[in-house]
């Protein structure tokens, strides 16, 4: 087992930043902590590193409880948002910093540095001053400095947020490649859902110091359990649907003329239930659908996003693949929409 956090609470003054969180990161797994700013994700990360003291709860790393350990004893390696490279040291000295602290022999240090600069592709920059490097290169130095210690858990604190779009994409692929190659247990904090979806084995969505849901990227996208998660990841059409039938472990609702039945227990649901329908699950058809009118069109490149107004009332977002072989719909055009009942996800059940 990699890392286990049990009932962790962190309190600053009076406000609670991390609220009774329990989660497990398996060995070699990359868990993304995703959430809006101020949700407590960085605090959680730093308390794993021991840089922020926890109020209660425990942290286990490789079976050992490290909650009371000093940060320097924990063998966690943190990659900082602003890289936190030592400006008075050059690239090599920055990478060697943690090794020197561990009093390794200089031949061993040289060997390890040689390996790691190979991995992060910094070979020719080894003797540069930090301020002479570009943002992406600085990011690699920060990564190398952490990797070289062969940490039990690698902690990323929004590592790519200071880079531009293109670089961000290539760097995240590289981080993922290295992480998989070395099989390092990792926690990756980000507020960018695309990054989280792209890089993580599993994603934990955080809000207000709590974890809303932990799942694989696919599942968290298609099967969110509550409105917050549904809304936070991707775009969402959220409806309130009439409950038609409800048993101890069965729920059926009526949504836009369709019956949707699921085998779930829905204790919290009474007369209405919340449903999620992703915009790409809706199609525009020539007939035999729900009549609607297009009131707004956005071109997002690979898709066209239509906002349509149903004749029965209410707006729905519809995403259609933007293929050049397909004539686009235009503003104010009257259309019909349709969707499959299987595509509907019932949320906020408990």
């Amino acid at each position: 087992m990699g890392l286990r956090i049990a009932n962790l609470t962190v309190q600053y003054n009076k406000s609670i930043a991390v609220d009774n969180i329990t989660l497990t990161v398996k060995t070699g797994e990359l868990l993304a902590l995703l959430g809006p700013s101020g949700c407590g994700k960085t605090t959680l990360l730093k308390s794993v590193a021991g840089l922020i003291p926890q109020t209660s709860g425990s942290i286990f790393l490789k079976q050992a409880e490290i909650s009371s350990w000093r940060p320097q004893k924990r063998n966690t390696a943190l990659v900082f948002q602003n890289y936190a490279l030592f400006p008075h040291l050059n690239v090599e000295e920055n990478i060697a910093y943690g090794l020197r602290t561990r009093k390794l022999s200089s031949t061993l240090i040289t060997k390890k540095i040689d390996q790691v600069v190979e991995i992060v592709r910094l070979k020719q920059y080894q003797h540069r001053q930090v301020h002479q490097l570009s943002g992406g290169q600085q990011q690699r130095v920060a990564l190398a400095r952490a990797l070289v210690l062969e940490p039990d858990v690698l902690l990323f604190d929004e590592p790519l947020s200071n880079l531009d779009e293109k670089l961000r994409v290539s760097m995240r692929q590289e981080i993922r490649r290295i992480q998989k190659e070395l099989q390092i247990t990792s926690i990756y904090v980000t507020h960018d859902q695309e990054e989280a979806l792209a890089i993580a084995d599993r994603i934990a969505i955080m809000n207000n110091g709590r974890i809303e849901q932990i799942e694989t990227p696919d599942n968290i996208y298609h099967y969110p359990t509550n409105t917050f998660v549904a809304d936070f990841i991707g775009s969402a059409n959220i409806f309130r649907a009439e409950v038609v039938k409800k048993d101890a472990n069965y729920l059926e609702v009526a949504l836009l003329g369709k019956r949707i039945g699921r085998k779930v227990s829905a204790k919290g649901i009474h007369s209405k239930a919340t449903c999620l329908l992703r915009p790409e699950e809706i199609s525009i058809v020539s007939q035999a659908g729900l009549p609607a009118k297009i009131v707004w069109v956005e071109n997002l490149g690979n898709i066209k996003r239509y906002t349509v107004k149903l004749l029965t009332g209410g707006n729905v977002i519809v995403d259609i693949l933007n293929s050049r072989n397909k004539a686009p719909y235009v503003l104010n055009q009257d259309i019909f929409i349709d969707f499959s009942a299987d595509a509907v996800q019932l949320i906020d059940l408990n």
């Binding site: 730093k46 966690t76 948002q81 602290t101």
Partner: peptide, 12 residues
């Protein structure tokens, strides 16, 4: 954060 980094890298 530089001090935090150093601490995280194992420094007393």
């Amino acid at each position: 954060s530089l001090e935090e980094a150093a601490r995280n890298l194992g420094s007393s």
